[in-house]
Amino acid sequence: MNNNIKIIAATPQSPSIAISLESTGIFLGILVSVSLLAGVGIKLVSNFNKIASDIRDLKDDLKNHCSTEGHEKVIQQVKLLQTEFNAHDKMLGVHLMNFENRKEAVQFLFGQMDQKIDHKCERWDNELKELKIDVKEVQGFLRKHESFVIRNRQD
């Protein structure tokens, strides 16, 4: 048996960072980009805060303006006008209902009058027919007694 053992000596290499000009340029580019993004983010947040502050100030100014300029009186007058308008609207509704009721009553009366007139017309027509029959009988009687001549009228 051949017991040859060979020993290989290896020295562990410690990790090392090799800095070259290219890697330095990349690192500096990343730092500049991150700082620019952070600056833009800070600028956006400050602008949003400024806008929120301006809106809050405008609300306060509007409240102060309303209380000092007498808008409360105008609002009270508008509310009073609104209640009066609602009252008039209700009164108009009542008047419209009365009008509709009267309209129906008048239409009912007209219907009754039409029925009465139609009934009277039918009655007169029947009486006129009876009178025509009576007149024809009288004419027939008078023709038999030839002493009387009946003239025909034509209107």
Rank of each mutant, 00 (worst) to 15 (best):
N4V: 07
I5H: 05
A9F: 07
P12C: 05
Q13L: 15
S16V: 14
I19F: 05
L21R: 10
E22C: 01
S23R: 02
G25E: 15
I26L: 11
F27M: 10
L28K: 13
G29L: 09
L37I: 07
L37R: 11
A38E: 03
V40N: 02
V40L: 10
G41M: 09
I42M: 08
V45F: 02
S46Y: 04
F48N: 15
F48A: 15
N49Q: 04
A52G: 05
D54Y: 01
R56E: 15
L58C: 13
D60P: 00
D60H: 12
D61A: 11
D61G: 04
L62I: 09
K63G: 12
T68M: 04
T68G: 03
G70H: 01
G70P: 00
K73R: 11
V74F: 05
I75F: 09
K79E: 14
K79Q: 15
Q82S: 10
F85R: 07
A87F: 10
A87K: 12
H88M: 14
H88I: 14
H88L: 15
M91S: 09
V94M: 09
H95M: 11
H95G: 06
R102G: 06
K103P: 00
E104L: 10
V106G: 00
Q107W: 00
G111Y: 00
Q112I: 03
D114K: 08
Q115I: 05
K116S: 03
I117Q: 01
K120I: 04
C121P: 01
C121Q: 13
W124Q: 03
W124H: 07
N126E: 05
K129G: 01
E130K: 10
V135L: 06
K136Q: 12
Q139V: 13
G140W: 06
F141T: 05
R143G: 01
